[in-house]
Amino acid sequence: MRLFGITALLVFALDQASKLYIVQGLGLAERLRLDVWPPYLNLRMAWNRGVNFGLLSNDTDLGRWILIGVALAISAGVTVWLMRGAHRPVALVAGGLLVGGALGNVVDRLVYGAVADFLNMSCCGIDNPYAFNVADIAIFAGALGLVAFTGRENTP
């Protein structure tokens, strides 16, 4: 479980540091856009009040607290589940990615009232209108890793 905790802590720290540097340090919250390597990598400020791609988005405090509760419940559930059984190291890393990312987005909702999304990538003539952050990448990779690397046939 140590690997799980270290992964979660590193993801959380990287997510929060990137948000602090880009949103506050580079002033993206005021500038709203910075082209880094167009069209492949751009910074576009987006305050996400919902889940991925703005789904379940609303501007109510109730919605915000529900999403915080759901993220905390999922994080606790994944943590307890991983603590209860023997899992390969890759599964512990995947769980740490998911939990660290989820907690990073929870902090955003507590501090800003919304999740700070800022990474935007496009390619090959496709203009991607969506932004995401380090926590979103970790949550996606962690969920995928848990599906791929856990189960009876995958335990040590």
Rank of each mutant, 00 (worst) to 15 (best):
I6V: 15
L9P: 01
L10K: 02
V11R: 10
F12P: 01
L14W: 09
L14Y: 05
D15W: 08
Q16I: 04
S18Y: 07
S18R: 09
S18I: 10
K19V: 08
Y21C: 01
Y21K: 00
G25E: 02
A29N: 08
E30L: 07
R33A: 15
R33I: 11
W37K: 04
Y40W: 15
N42P: 03
M45W: 13
M45E: 11
W47L: 11
N48L: 03
R49I: 09
G50D: 01
N52F: 15
F53N: 07
L55P: 06
L55S: 13
N58W: 07
N58C: 09
D59L: 12
D59W: 05
D59K: 05
D59T: 13
D61E: 14
D61K: 09
D61V: 13
D61Q: 13
R64L: 14
W65M: 12
I68W: 11
I68A: 14
I68H: 12
V70Q: 07
L72M: 13
L72I: 12
A73E: 04
S75Y: 10
A76D: 00
G77R: 00
T79W: 01
L82S: 00
L82V: 00
R84L: 08
R84N: 11
R88S: 09
P89E: 09
A94N: 04
A94K: 04
V99A: 06
A102P: 01
A102Q: 11
L103F: 10
V107D: 09
L110F: 04
Y112W: 13
V115R: 08
F118A: 02
L119V: 14
N120T: 05
N120I: 02
M121G: 05
C123M: 14
D127Q: 14
A131T: 15
A131M: 07
I139T: 11
A143Y: 06
G145L: 04
L146Q: 09
V147M: 13
F149D: 01
T150A: 02
R152T: 06
R152L: 08
E153Y: 01
T155P: 00
